[in-house]
Structure formats: C-alpha cells, structure tokens
C-alpha cells in the first residue's frame, strides 16, 4: 500500500493532463487512508476519506471544469529521473520502522479513540477549535470576495 501511494503521488506530479493528475491525487489519498486504517489510526483514515476525497477532490474537479487550462505537451519526467527517484526512495519504503501489520482493530478501541479525541476537543482545546472554525469561515469569505 505504501508502494501504491508513492507511485500514485509520483504519477500525480508527472502526468500531463490535470484530470489524470487529479485522479492520481484521489488514488493517493485513498491509499493513504487505507494505510492509516490498517495501522490502527482508524479515525484519521476515515476522516481523510471523507474530507479529502469527498470535499477537496470535488473542489479541484470543479475548478478543472471551470477554468480552461493550458498545459504544455512536454514530458517533464524523464525515465532517468524517475528511475533515480525510485532508487533513492525505495530503501526508505523497505526499511521503515513504523509500519506494523495489525489489521482491523476492535470496535471498542475505535470508540475509545473517538471518545478521547472528542473530549479533548470540546473541553481543553475548545478555544482552538473555535479559532480553526473562524479561520475556515475567513477563508470561505476570502474566496468569495476574491472571485466576486
């Protein structure tokens, strides 16, 4: 799954058309979410799928349909560059120490994680949560005023 995410990220950079690179970005996010889900970070995996593939990719696709992109028909990734990149990055993929192979944690563990995160968000970090909400609203207002 790590290899799939790495390959899709490289393809997202290197492909010519924006639609193809968008598709590869979605594939990268889905594979990252599956990686997180398999390694026990179930909440973040599901949040990545809902937020990025649901919202952000829709935003990017909307922009793609709105704008008339001009892209150069140049192969910016030469095969030599790709091969050197793979040679440099593959040992990091093979010898990573964080990856464990525990599949599918129980429901109680996930419930516990969700409870802890919710408790922290609504009690101790409530001010930060409100500030992040304000930042999101400000970004939406800025986008509206900029594209008006």
């Amino acid at each position: 799954m790590n290899l799939i995410s790495g390959l899709s990220s490289m393809l997202a950079m290197g492909l010519l058309s924006p639609v193809q690179s968008m598709l590869c970005l979605m594939m990268l996010f889905v594979s990252t979410a599956m990686c997180l889900y398999n390694q026990g970070f179930m909440l973040m995996g599901m949040l990545y799928v809902t937020m990025y593939v649901g919202a952000m990719a829709m935003l990017f696709l909307f922009m793609l349909s709105l704008l008339k992109m001009e892209y150069m028909e140049q192969g910016s990734m030469s095969p030599l560059m790709l091969t050197m990149l793979m040679v440099c990055l593959l040992p990091l993929d093979m010898f990573n120490m964080y990856e464990t192979d525990n599949m599918m944690e129980e429901v109680s563990t996930v419930w516990n994680e969700l409870t802890i995160v919710g408790n922290q968000f609504y009690t101790e970090y409530a001010v930060l949560l409100m500030m992040v909400g304000l930042i999101l609203m400000l970004s939406v207002m800025g986008a509206m005023s900029m594209t008006r």
């Binding site: 997202a12 950079m13 492909l15 690179s21 922009m63 992109m69 892209y71 150069m72 990734m77």
Partner: peptide, 21 residues
C-alpha cells in the same frame, strides 16, 4: 515535487496538498 511539477498550475496546488499530507 516542485521541481517536477512543470506541466500546469494545478500541479503546484496538488504538490502543496501532498506536502501537507
């Protein structure tokens, strides 16, 4: 990614997303 992304402007934003990821 910033070195490779020479195709269009959208790949710059995609590269930023990938950095944050």
């Amino acid at each position: 990614s910033l070195y490779i992304s020479k195709n269009n402007m959208m790949t710059l934003l995609i590269g930023m997303e990938m950095l944050l990821l």
